[in-house]
């Protein structure tokens, strides 16, 4: 924490400081070669990102979601300077990412959910020492930031453990710390909670919330986990087919696609569909197992009590709606409206 609460690069105020990330009609077109026969190949142009425009203010925490192949990671790659846009204008902290990749690198932190940037065979601390030198982090800042991350992400006992021996959750926390040692203004997170257990997820989310509140770090995260968004982001952007199809609060997204949770019920034996109280209804029956859908906003307690009282219950579980289904429903409502 260090108590200073200062932010590196805060002196770059001026025009555009309010809109920290700016996209104006950004496009990315790929030439895809597809095999159509033994030797025949077809060339096809794919618009992975198609005229994307939005701005993110400093200190915002935004969820960036959409189905696979919607253009999410292409956008992130353009924002981090990995990919060059085919058209449009893009600025992060006033920098054109693709032209000044290394300068931008000092201002951003990136966590790739599935690919660790830590050194596999070395103790965790060694990776941090490399960051310290590679990013030329002043010694005092490095120590402060490391202490803070170690404390909040509970890395203390892991610093001397080779990365290959860390669990997935421990490694993710290690990766997040590595991305923050140089005081980035923006943090990009790609599926930060994928594959983590409940406890690790909670730790990661809590840390991100604090980081954003205390340091004012702008956070952009892609995820498949709706709870990440619910607990972290005041704003959600949904991308599909390379276009922004929704930009607003999460509540609005739920309204746009009234989402449902699923109750999975295992009965003692095969029975006809459960007669559930409205608006819950049976979606599927397979032997002794039945699937019931009910509104995400409603409590499951009443429904569970009712079923338990009237049916020979063996086991049950509640499944949260996932982003795909929310978006799918959003589309369905839109086309029917």
């Amino acid at each position: 924490m260090g108590g200073s609460g200062t932010m590196a690069g805060a002196d770059t105020a001026g025009p555009g400081a309010a809109a920290f990330i700016e996209l104006d009609g950004v496009e990315k077109v790929f030439d895809v070669r597809k095999k159509t026969g033994f030797l025949k190949r077809e060339r096809r142009r794919v618009r992975a990102v198609d005229g994307l425009s939005f701005t993110v203010a400093r200190g915002e925490m935004v969820g960036y979601i959409g189905p696979n192949g919607a253009g999410k990671s292409t956008t992130i790659k353009m924002l981090t300077g990995i990919l060059t846009p085919s058209g449009g204008r893009l600025r992060v902290a006033g920098i054109d990412p693709s032209r000044e990749r290394t300068r931008l690198a000092q201002r951003i932190g990136v966590v790739f959910g599935q690919r660790t940037t830590l050194w596999w065979d070395l103790p965790l601390i060694d990776s941090y020492r490399l960051m310290h030198r590679m990013y030329r982090i002043p010694d005092v800042r490095y120590r402060e930031n490391l202490e803070r991350c170690v404390e909040l992400l509970q890395l203390g006992e892991l610093l001397d453990v080779p990365v290959r021996q860390l669990s997935l959750g421990q490694r993710m926390r290690g990766d997040i710390a590595a991305a923050l040692l140089h005081d980035p203004d923006v943090l990009y997170l790609d599926e930060p909670t994928i594959g983590l257990d409940v406890v690790s997820k909670a730790k990661v989310r809590g840390f991100l919330r604090d980081l954003n509140a205390e340091r004012g770090t702008t956070v952009l995260l892609t995820t498949h986990d709706l709870q990440d968004i619910e607990q972290l982001c005041s704003r959600v952007m949904v991308i599909d087919h390379g276009r922004l199809v929704y930009d607003g609060p999460l509540a609005g997204l739920h309204e746009a696609g009234e989402s449902e949770r699923t109750l999975v019920v295992d009965l003692e034996r095969e029975l006809p569909p459960i007669e559930a109280p409205e608006p819950a209804r049976v979606m599927r029956v397979e032997g002794p197992r039945q699937w019931l859908a009910f509104p995400a906003s409603a409590s499951a307690a009443g429904l569970v009590a009712r079923i338990a009282a009237e049916y020979p219950l063996v086991d049950l579980s509640v499944r949260e709606p996932d982003i795909e289904s929310v978006i799918a429903r959003m589309y369905a409502e839109r086309t029917s409206a």
């Binding site: 590196a8 805060a10 770059t12 290394t102 300068r103 000092q106 201002r107 982090i137 002043p138 140089h182």
Partner: peptide
């Protein structure tokens, strides 16, 4: 803070 900004400047210079 100033130091960090300086460092990022130095790294970004494209000579």
């Amino acid at each position: 803070m100033a130091e960090t900004a300086e460092a990022s400047e130095a790294a970004g210079r494209a000579e």
